[in-house]
Design a protein around this nucleic acid. Sequence first.
DNA 1: GTGAAAGCGCTAACAA
DNA 2: TTGTTAGCGCTTTCAC
Lengths: 326, 326
Amino acid sequence: MTTIKDVAHHAEVSVATVSRVINRNGYVNEDTRKKVEAAVEELNYKPNSVARSLFKKQSKTIGIIVPDITNPYFPELVRGVEDYLIKKGFTTILCNSDEDPEKERLYLDVMKQKYVDGVIIVSNMAEREFIDECDIPMVALDRNVHQEMPAFVIDNRDGGRVATEHLFDVGCKRVAHIKGPDQVINSEERYEGYIEVVNGRDWFQDSFVVSGNFEQKQAAQVTKQLLNKHPEIDGIFAGNDAMAVGVLKAAESLNLKVPEDLAIIGFDGIDLTEMTSPELTTLSQPIYQMSRDAAKALITLIEGKTIKQKENLFPLQLLKRQSTKR
Amino acid sequence: MTTIKDVAHHAEVSVATVSRVINRNGYVNEDTRKKVEAAVEELNYKPNSVARSLFKKQSKTIGIIVPDITNPYFPELVRGVEDYLIKKGFTTILCNSDEDPEKERLYLDVMKQKYVDGVIIVSNMAEREFIDECDIPMVALDRNVHQEMPAFVIDNRDGGRVATEHLFDVGCKRVAHIKGPDQVINSEERYEGYIEVVNGRDWFQDSFVVSGNFEQKQAAQVTKQLLNKHPEIDGIFAGNDAMAVGVLKAAESLNLKVPEDLAIIGFDGIDLTEMTSPELTTLSQPIYQMSRDAAKALITLIEGKTIKQKENLFPLQLLKRQSTKR
DNA sequence: GTGAAAGCGCTAACAA
DNA sequence: TTGTTAGCGCTTTCAC
């Protein structure tokens, strides 16, 4: 590895001068600049960013903590962040938390030690106190972490409402809900949106809601039980797309026609929803944009500016497809 | 941020002693060790890994370069790597190359500057010369990069053969192939496996092979054309699972029954294949294991040992599902 | 305009 | 067993 010293020798100047030209700051004579640039070129010199980090106390690296990159909702999120940041000269460290506060803590510690410049976090468990003590620029994505942290999210509750209403709009009479995991705030909010719509209807009872854990398989299982108990159900709002697929599978195995016998709507708008048949109606999030904006905000924070707009709500789009066409 | 100096003051010893206890090397008296540990505890001291990196010339960070994390094949790969490495104290930088050698180069440069300890790369474009000059421990995953680099892969050619044969086994008479992108070596090899089986059969001609670019939509399109041209086709081997879904969609829109009129087999074994209906037969790769082993090998390399076994072949598993059940 | 030198936080000789 | 110190590669005062 060639160092700044090598370049200095080669160009017959001091390291200070070399530093000045590569950072384009401070005065440097045109001629010496050219000499230095030539040396840089010739030796194929690349400044060592570790040394730089040590001095500057920043690393041009950010961390992103997601529950699980294997969950199809997250890759696009991560990609949006990475794409934006690489252009700005930042590199992205990926962390899978499995929704485990312990792991989040661990990762955050590691990142701090590495002088990570900022982190983007998808979490709703993170303890306020710990986050604060981290003292690192941070933005929340997909879920609010706490009031003061800029967040890039959609209105889950509204989404839940819209999804449920859509099912009634296409003629459903009895609409059930497969809820996501209880500890994820988003599931809770989507559920509340559903409740807002169905509450007070004479047929509604708690047993129209079952929990599916955001996974296809379990959703299929609980859906079967649900439909056995309440054969009158003719519409299901699944808390996310993966579960919507599970519902579809369940319908199939019970010989129910979708959408004729059972209409289905998912949530998130991942690609998967176009892969099934019938294709799934879903509420689509502008995932790429959200993550891009989150990354942008993080940079702002890193630059020492502040972000007044704490909660940034993005619009959901109702993608009407075959699973609710009737 | 508290530094080693602070701890030293607090414990009334020298920084060298502190360094010794936190690194558990060199002699240190039991009592002073306790004093130091108490100070560390009290000040909540975490060693600054940037300073450490600068001295040690290694960063406890590795990079992983994949074409696109958004492609459902890669998240699991990345997860396997990340899971293993975090346990070993390494942190993972994610890079999306979009199969672009220019980007690969850029990322590799950045990583070198950051003293990344090693990289795992999914690529077949990387220029040998450039890789060599990188002088960084590297292993290849999913595709061979060059002879000397340890690679963790499956036998694509064999897979192509097995997939094609399976279609004939279930009674297909005319089997076509939707090939992946030409520049990806894996597509090429899977194609060769297919050719091995069909070559020489009287009905076979080049027009039984079309290119689908690993994407669902395009695969659906070319499949329609293919089936219009050759309505006699009763089995299709798709170069990956996403394209198999596309084929399924195409079959549907042409009112062909799967598997009765058209049997379909995919490749890779991503979760997606269980989401469709009928569920897709596919050749499943042990993705998680492969990536884990690749990570393990990278660590070995980083530790300065060498890996004799250059090409590490993993077994494919034929998952027989509804799309070929007849 | 340019260079000498201090220092970022840590490790590892080398002395004591 | 412990401390002193040089140095990892870079940036930035502060003199000249």
